[in-house]
């Protein structure tokens, strides 16, 4: 009896010892030198893996930061200047201060402004729906309204407004990661400087049709009348293809253009209400969700969690969704 116990102990311990020695040598032989700086930088980064920096994830960004000679052009939109400053300290490199950005919705064609021309039925996906007549309204440039952008947002910073049919960006949650910009087939989402005191002015329209036609299908479409161009003292507005575009770099937020725009396609955000006129309908400004919208948002988050769980369980669908999407 004792003998058996003894043999067992000796055999197992020697087996363990031998394995440990083998493991030690293998680990030694195959050791991969990694720059400790990469670890340090990754530690500082927000670990959201959103891809807003243009790299597939935070690790890849850290590697790129360490490898780069000049990191002034690289930026983490989620962490912002604080994080980049820390990164700069670790790497001992110059970091450029960058203004924070936010996603804006460049369409104000809500249900009341933009009449439907057909009833779309099929997959709830903006890209697919827009293949048919460019969406269910007469404006082939406007928001399709099926929420690809909301679906793409990893930060729960967007939701579809039930009343207007347009997406809304939540200012305090948006980190300007660019996901919605990539997701939108109509290029309606754009990253815009958050602006002084969070104030910003932009043209909320993408319609390149001539004025009359654009107006026919949407009452708040930009007609390209160039009134704003005449009004702007800073040369910040230009009109191409009957569509006005504001250059945020030049814009001094004077709001003159908002006053002259007859079709209310220029939006002013977070300004005090004007005294001499009624405020413009601003889908972007509504920050509180209705009850039903809140419920939908909850469901969406729940679904996403479920979807991700489902993926790891199903061995057949073995692709890494993060990488697949981001590398595209």
């Amino acid at each position: 009896m004792n003998e058996t116990i003894l043999t067992t102990i000796i055999t197992l311990s020697s087996l363990g010892a031998v394995s440990a020695i083998i493991l030690y040598f293998i680990a030694k032989k195959f050791h991969v030198e990694t720059d400790p700086k990469i670890e340090a930088v990754e530690e500082v980064l927000p670990a959201t893996n959103c891809g807003g920096c243009g790299f597939p994830g935070c690790r890849a960004f850290a590697e790129a930061l360490v490898a780069a000679d000049d990191i002034s052009s690289m930026h983490c939109p989620v962490g912002g200047n604080d994080v980049m400053k820390k990164v700069g300290e670790i790497l001992g490199a110059e970091v450029e201060e960058k203004d924070p950005y936010i996603a804006v919705v460049k369409c104000s064609g809500s249900f009341e402004h933009r009449k439907k021309t057909n009833v779309y039925e099929g997959a709830s996906n903006c890209k697919i729906a827009s293949l048919l007549y460019g969406g269910d309204t007469g404006c082939a440039y406007g928001c399709v309204g099926l929420g690809d952008c909301v679906e793409s947002c990893d930060f729960d910073a967007m939701y579809m407004d039930e009343k207007t049919g347009l997406p809304v960006v939540l200012e305090d949650k948006c980190v300007a990661c660019n996901a919605c910009v990539v997701a939108c087939p109509k290029d309606i989402m754009e990253l815009w400087p958050k602006g002084r005191k969070n104030r910003r002015i932009y043209v909320a329209c993408m319609n390149e049709e001539k004025g009359g036609i654009a107006k026919k299908y949407c009452s708040v479409a930009c007609t390209g009348c160039e009134k704003c161009v005449e009004e702007c003292r800073y040369d910040a507005i230009s009109v191409t293809n009957s569509l006005a575009v504001i250059d945020p770099e030049k814009c001094k937020l004077c709001r003159k253009c908002v006053d002259v725009c007859k079709s209310n396609s220029i939006l002013e955000i977070n300004f005090p209400p004007p005294k001499d006129r009624a405020p413009v309908d601003r889908p972007d400004r509504k920050l509180a969700m209705t009850k039903s919208e809140e419920k939908m948002q909850e469901e969406r988050i729940l679904n996403r969690v479920e979807k991700q769980e489902g993926e790891s369980e199903n061995p057949q669908q073995n692709t890494n969704i993060e990488q697949g999407e981001k590398s595209e």
Binding site: Q317, T319, I321, G324, E325, E328
Partner: peptide, 11 residues
């Protein structure tokens, strides 16, 4: 369909 939904276009 599945792979398109996931954005795996290489596959």
């Amino acid at each position: 369909q599945n792979m398109t939904m996931r954005g795996n276009f290489d596959e």
